[in-house]
């Protein structure tokens, strides 16, 4: 089978070309150009070392609030969102009446595009005809009505609600794992007199620990990819109160043409992603075997 050897690189080539063009080369470029003063207006390209990073952390009044927004969203998403999705999975795996309908229905907001969800919420929050204010009016709480997305006090929580409650991915993944647990383990625990709550917490939870860890990593990654839902609804405002790092990178690049600075923000995003991944894997002991 000598001809094998020629075909190996040929079969690997398409995947490697894709990887080079969309991952490897951009990754190198983002790290290298973050060390340059690299602007379109005025046209400059000169090595300045870490000065973009120094500027980010010490001179830019917008950066730290935006970094904080990003980290707060990651924290909320990794906790509340995942707990919600996991809790629903623990209710559904006992196959109560209608569990399949709930599983499917709860997944729907995650299956349609983020930009459509954003448009839907832009209207739900609309000050004059949006459903949120309409509900408040109909139950006599008219004084609580707000222009939710554009009011300084409500913009951040209002934007957060666009993704916080839709934990369909978490539910689906944890549920799939729960359903794959061997029935005999549950039966054995029942025979030993364990209540269903004890079974949930002492037996099932440890068995799906790694999958929950996976969904936490996915939740953190999701928050670092978050763009369209903010771009379409608030555009990051008022001020920078709902801007996150990806949106800041985008505006730095598209409105200020400051590419070196934008790519320094990119490196910060990559660093946060890596730290989150390592921390979550440790927290959920995902490298350890169960048995």
């Amino acid at each position: 089978m000598k001809h094998n050897k020629i075909w190996i690189p040929i079969f690997l080539a398409p995947a490697c070309i894709l990887f080079l063009l969309v991952f490897a080369l951009p990754l190198v470029l983002v790290f290298v150009t973050s060390l340059f003063e690299y602007k379109l207006m005025p046209n400059t390209f000169s090595f300045t070392g870490l000065s973009n990073y120094v500027k980010l952390f010490t001179q830019d009044p917008n950066f730290l609030p935006i970094l904080k927004n990003t980290l707060v969203w990651i924290l909320i998403h990794c906790t509340l969102h995942v707990v919600l999705g996991t809790a629903l999975a623990f209710v559904l795996y006992k196959k109560p009446f209608g569990w399949k309908v709930v599983r499917t229905g709860y997944m729907i907001p995650n299956i349609i595009s983020q930009s459509a969800i954003a448009m839907i919420f832009l209207n739900l929050y609309n000050a004059s005809f949006g459903a949120v204010n309409s509900v408040l009016k109909s139950i006599g709480l008219e004084h609580l009505c707000h222009n939710w997305l554009f009011d300084n006090n409500t913009a951040f929580p209002a934007v957060t609600m666009i993704w916080l409650l839709f934990a369909g991915y978490t539910t689906t993944l944890v549920l799939a794992q729960l359903l794959s647990v061997d029935e005999s383990i549950i039966e054995a625990a029942r025979v030993d007199g364990a209540s269903s709550l004890q079974i949930d917490f002492m037996i099932m939870f440890p068995l799906v620990r790694k999958m929950i860890g996976t969904t936490v990593i996915m939740a953190a990654a999701y928050m670092l990819q978050l763009f369209s839902m903010i771009y379409i609804t608030t555009g990051g405002g008022p001020g920078v109160s709902t801007t996150n790092l990806p949106l800041y990178l985008y505006t730095t690049m598209k409105n200020r043409y400051d590419y070196g600075y934008a790519n320094a923000i990119g490196v910060v995003i990559i660093a946060i992603g890596a730290v989150c991944m390592v921390a979550i894997r440790k927290l959920f002991r995902m490298n350890e075997e169960d048995y």
Binding site: L25, L27, V30, P246, L249
Partner: peptide
């Protein structure tokens, strides 16, 4: 090749645009 899993794509907007 698996490294690609670790990269948030929003971080490389400019390089991809450039390429």
């Amino acid at each position: 090749l698996s490294i690609s899993l670790m990269i948030p794509m929003t971080s490389v907007l400019h390089p991809v645009y450039l390429i």
